[in-house]
């Protein structure tokens, strides 16, 4: 608030000033003093209002400073940190998917070797030694497949790690949201929930329950029905 700002309603002084000048003209000291106290009361009330306003502004400035400090910490440290965490999640999921596919790819030839062994056994007549050899081969291949299945199971442990990291980032997003909402409500006195809709051309990614809005297809059958309505 500027100190040179004129009082909003100077006419509130008019009544007591008029009473004072009437009392002066009539040389009535008692009436003059009572008009002067009325004048002082109006003035006191105005000063009080000003002080109250300055106090509120100071309070909101302090509050904003606190939120600013929190936001600065979030922006400088926590957000880059969260980005690195999410990059790590991407890496972990990518590695686990490739590891799983590598293992599955390796099982194909092992199964094929059993199949070929069985065919050879049938074609060559099942002699005792050939049977023994086939049995060893089957045990070997199945052992290989079994151990790879075990590794596939192990590769799924990424879910535990990524889950923990994602949950950490979620709590950061919560905190960021709270700080921004508080800041917005200090600035304009109401909550600023205006969210920019992503442009459709970019694509929006998979449907996330509770997040995605608008009309969404429920699966491939729905897509097919829609396309056939469009004449495809």
């Amino acid at each position: 608030m500027s100190m040179s700002e004129p009082p909003q309603d100077i006419h509130v002084y008019a009544d007591s000033l008029a009473a004072m000048s009437r009392a002066l003209a009539a040389r009535d000291e008692h009436a003059f003093r009572s008009a002067l106290s009325a004048f002082d009361a109006v003035r006191d009330a105005e000063v009080l209002t000003g002080v109250r306003r300055v106090t509120v502004e100071l309070q909101s400035a302090l509050q904003r400073f606190e939120i600013d400090a929190r936001l600065i910490d979030l922006a400088h440290h926590q957000v880059p940190d969260a980005r690195r965490r999410l990059e790590h999640v991407l890496r972990l999921t990518n590695d686990a998917a490739h590891r799983t596919m590598d293992l599955v790819d390796q099982c194909g030839p092992l199964a094929q070797r059993i199949e070929q062994g069985a065919e050879r056994l049938v074609a060559g007549g099942a002699s005792a030694s050939a049977l023994g050899q086939f049995r060893t081969q089957v045990a070997e291949c199945l052992g290989g497949i079994r151990s790879r299945l075990g590794d596939v199971r192990l590769a799924q442990s990424y879910q535990d790690l990524t889950g923990q990291i994602v949950r950490g980032v979620m709590s950061l997003v919560d905190e960021l949201e709270r700080a921004l909402i508080e800041l917005a409500s200090i600035v304009d006195g109401k909550d600023a929930a205006a969210r920019r809709e992503q442009t459709m051309g970019r694509g929006r990614g998979p449907v996330v329950p509770g997040v995605s809005h608008g009309e969404v297809v429920s699966g491939q059958q729905d897509v097919d029905a829609l396309l056939s309505d469009l004449g495809m």
Binding site: R204, G214, E215, V216, V217, L227, L230
Partner: peptide
């Protein structure tokens, strides 16, 4: 994964 009807259209 884009599943909005308007996108398919």
């Amino acid at each position: 994964a884009e599943a909005k009807r308007e996108q398919i259209v």
